[in-house]
Structures are given as structure tokens and as C-alpha cells.
Amino acid sequence: MRRYLLTYSYIGSNFRGVQKNLDLEDKLKGDPESVQGILEIAIKRFKPANCPKVVVSSRTDIGVHALENSAHVDLDHPQVDCPTWPEYMLYGMNRYFSKAHADLWIKNIQAVPDTFHARFSAKSRTYLYRLAILKPCQCQDAINQYSISVPMGEWKRCCFIGNSNFDVDKVRKAASFFIGLKDFQAFTRPASHHPEGYSTIRHINEMTITPGLPMINSIHDSRYNLYNFWDIVVNAKSFCYRQVRRMVAVLIAVAQNKIELDEVKLMIEDPQNNGWNPRATTAPPHGLFLTKVEYDPQDLIIPKQTEEETTKEIRSICD
């Protein structure tokens, strides 16, 4: 039995989120509509002796993308000691995803110690939220999100806002309130929906708002010229359910003068009496990308056998 770390990318538009649905009548039934489920289906094609269970590091919602997510899996297979086995798995899994028309790609597979855990060993996670704000010089009679002009290259890859009222200085000021150890109770699901003992306290290491770039050069699509792109990047060890999308929603509301800076501070400093502000609408999932899950390099190194263990192993083979 050997444990492997998988790093992979995916477009979440056609997945029902990362976490698989368990069929209570047939617990071994596959779930190709989830990232976790289709990873397990691909691994089972190598016919391991055990039933592989993929443990994901980050359970992104439906519609959220990942430039790099990670997971671990334990495999009992005759070839696990072969040096080229990870490369063979990577090739086989990507070939399967291509044939299955799954928007998922394995970036790397490596053997790791049995003590490694994709979720609990993670030191931090970094998310990117992409915004496109209508330029002040443009005028669109946008009734709703479906009537604004969106470049096709950005479809379901960015959140487009057809309102040029966007104060970046206020956004950065509001973002500074999130930094550090805070209670994000107001930025996630109600307490009644959490398991007993669940904490909504999280430490945000960094949150930045910088000018972004379109995915395709504007010379190929003039609609890109209608917008200014902004990247919101946030890093922490872990996040509450929908926390990132709700933080972004509050930043957008602040930028458009729907919520005052003092109201944001109260949501963080006194969430018991200042819950979610209804003037902010949770940002859509398609603008969100998980870009990195970081680990301590030492946690990925398999300890070398001691001389005594090696000697015993050689003797057992000779006997």
C-alpha cells in the first residue's frame, strides 16, 4: 500500500462541486459529476487491490474552478514500487478524462509518507476572484447580468459588473478589515447548519486587490475594451463555507456605496448582533479560482529506511 499526492486543475462549470454524493443503496457506485467521484473512477481503471478513496484538500462549490487543487489516495497495486508508476498513472488518468470530456487535468502525482494528509497537512490555500467592471466611459442599458455584453473568452470565468460605480480605494480599505484572526460567522452559513463545535474563526494572512488581465487579447474581441479587470487574491490556512465569495460580495457592495465601511467592521467585530447584510449578494462561483494549496516540503518526503530495516528486508527476500 502506498499513498500518493495528486495535484490537478479543473473547470468547475460542469461539475456538481468537488465532493461526491454517496449512494446509500450502492456505496461503491461512482459519481462522475463530482471532481472527487471522477478521480476515483479514473483510478479504479488501474485495477488496484483496494477500493481507492480520494481525500481532497479543498471542497470547492459547484461552478468554482481550480488552477491547482490536491488530494491523496492510498493504492495497493503490484506496480506501486516501480519508479515510473506515477507517470504511468498521470498519463492514463488524463487520457481517460479527455475521452470522458471531463474538464479536469492531472498536473502531478508523487508518492508521499503515510502520515501525509491532503487536507490537514495544508499550510495555506490561495484563492483568486476575477472581476470585470464596466468602464465609466461606457454606457449600457443592463437590466440584469444576462443583458450585459460579455466577451466569450470569459464566459463563466469571471464576474462581470455592468455598473461603473466602483471605488477601488474603499475596496482596499474594507479588505484590510479581514486581515488577521477574525470571526467570520456573518460570512458563512447559519450556526444551526454547522456541526457541533465548529468554529468560524479564521486567520486571513493576506488579501490584495490589483489590476487584472483578460484571458484573451482585446484585439480579438472588442468587448474586452468595455471593462477594467481586477484580481482579488486571498490567502489563509482554511476558509468557512462560501466565505471567500461573501467577502468579495461585501467588497463589491462597499465599492458601489451599498454598504458603509463601518458596517463591514461591525460584521467582523460583532457578528452576533451584525449578521449578513442583505444589501450584499453572494458573488457568483464562476469568478472564483483555487490557485494553490501549500504544504511544507518536509511533509512530502518519505523517510529513508534505516540500515537495520534494509538488512531485515534483504534477509526476508533471501530466505
Rank of each mutant, 00 (worst) to 15 (best):
D221Y: 04
P214S: 02
N217A: 07
K237D: 03
P214K: 00
F239P: 00
E206R: 14
M215E: 14
I232F: 09
H220N: 10
F229T: 02
D231H: 10
C240R: 00
T200E: 12
I219Y: 08
S218L: 03
F239E: 01
P214Q: 00
L213T: 13
D231K: 07
S222F: 07
F229Q: 05
M215S: 12
W230E: 00
T200H: 10
R202N: 05
W230S: 03
T200R: 11
N205K: 08
Y241F: 13
I216Y: 11
L213Q: 12
H220V: 02
R223I: 07
I232L: 14
D231G: 07
M215C: 10
A236Y: 01
Y224E: 02
T200A: 08
R223V: 05
C240H: 01
N225V: 02
I232D: 08
I216H: 10
V233K: 13
V244C: 02
I232Y: 05
I209D: 05
A236L: 03
T208W: 07
L226H: 12
A236G: 10
D221C: 06
N217S: 15
N205Y: 13
I201E: 13
R242P: 00
G212S: 04
M215R: 13
Y224L: 06
P214Y: 00
V244I: 13
I232T: 05
V233H: 09
L213S: 14
I232W: 08
V234Y: 00
N225G: 14
N217D: 15
V244G: 00
I201A: 08
V234N: 00
H220F: 15
L213D: 12
P211I: 09
V234M: 02
C240K: 02
H220E: 03
M207H: 06
Y241N: 08
Y227R: 11
Y224W: 09
E206F: 08
L213C: 11
D231L: 07
S218K: 14
Q243M: 15
N235Y: 05
I219R: 11
L213E: 12
N235G: 05
F229S: 07
R242L: 07
V244M: 01
R202L: 10
F239S: 01
R223S: 15
N205M: 13
M215N: 12
D221T: 09
I201V: 15
P211V: 10
T208L: 12
I232S: 02
I219P: 03
S238Q: 06
D221H: 04
L226C: 13
H203C: 14
T208M: 10
T210V: 15
F229Y: 15
V244Q: 01
I209N: 06
S238P: 01
Y227V: 09
K237S: 06
I204C: 08
F229A: 07
R202K: 15
H220L: 14
S218Y: 09
I201D: 09
I219F: 11
A236D: 02
